[in-house]
């Protein structure tokens, strides 16, 4: 047993370590754990006419019967699915390339793939409006060669999709690359040695080893898209809107915190499996 601990007990005091970690842990309890429980509690124990509170699922019933709310949830789920469908193949091919290539070109590709991590989404939103918006750069270029303008994705559901894919490329590539790093060169060479071609190597050797990383990447994407605010707020349509802007509007513009928190709890429920899986993988990685 370490000396500090023994000393701490011998004097009948709280160990120094606990004192040192107390402030941030208290902050986590107050600002994360407590709000979550409080959110569930205050959306289930609603004020009743007599001035007390009683158990009620009224706000949830409202959400799941209100077609506007349901549309917003649907567009969020749709965006999540579409983004994942774009992100996985794009990022997996980039990550596979980076895993097996080296040299200056590969370094350049890796640099570019990670670059969006350093671009705040608000600047990205602005850039995409300038490029893809009405009379944006793409329109300019098309016009200059005599082609018609594009159907701009700005203010349609595709606007947030483009932005979110752009924004999520770095982290997805990094997660997949880190998973691919665990597949040793030799185990791939051993497979080729026994006669596996590129496809069999990918299918039988690489893919089974990175399933976990793929699930982590998907979880991260799901969590990110369910909580996306800036990109859908700036690039997306006014209605239906994704959960992020929807919650913000309900909370600030409609001044209806209880409904907003109900919406938040619903996003928690949709993400809980992914969230737990993601946090568990991070924790496991950290231990190793």
């Amino acid at each position: 047993m370490p000396a500090s601990d023994i000393v701490g007990r011998a004097r009948g005091r709280v160990p120094t370590g606990l004192l040192l970690v107390a402030p941030p842990v208290a902050l986590v309890c107050w600002m994360i754990i407590w709000p979550i429980f409080s959110a569930i509690a205050r959306t289930l124990w609603l004020p009743d006419p007599e001035g007390g509170r009683q158990l009620s699922v009224a706000t949830y019933t409202f959400f799941f019967t209100d077609s506007y709310s349901l549309n917003n949830l649907a567009i969020t789920l749709w965006t999540t699915g579409v983004c994942a469908a774009f992100l996985l193949p794009i990022c997996l091919s980039i990550a596979l390339y980076l895993r097996f290539a080296d040299g200056k070109l590969a370094a350049y590709v890796q640099g570019l793939a990670i670059f969006p991590m350093f671009v705040p989404s608000i600047i990205l939103s602005y850039a995409l409006i300038r490029v893809l918006g009405p009379n944006g750069t793409v329109d300019l270029l098309l016009n200059s060669v005599g082609l018609p303008k594009i159907n701009t994705p700005y203010l349609t559901p595709w606007g947030p999709v483009i932005g979110l894919v752009w924004d999520n490329i770095p982290i997805t590539v990094l997660i997949l690359l880190s998973g691919l790093g665990a597949v040793s060169d030799q185990s791939i060479e051993a497979a080729r040695d026994v006669g596996a071609n590129r496809r069999s190597v990918f299918w039988h050797i690489i893919l089974p080893r990175i399933t976990n990383s793929i699930l982590v990447a998907i979880s991260f994407t799901v969590l990110g898209i369910f909580s996306a605010f800036t990109l859908p707020y700036v690039l997306g349509p006014a209605a239906p809107e994704m959960m992020g802007p929807f919650m913000q509007r309900t909370f600030r513009d409609l001044n209806d915190p209880t409904t907003a928190i109900t919406q938040a709890v619903i996003t928690f429920c949709f993400c809980i499996a992914f969230g737990i899986f993601y946090v568990r993988s991070v924790a496991k990685n950290r231990k190793a």
Binding site: S184, Q186, S187, E189, A190, A191, D193, V194, I205
Partner: peptide, 10 residues
Amino acid sequence: GMVFQSHALW
């Protein structure tokens, strides 16, 4: 047939 240093088992 190659046997690798780190055995490289799957």
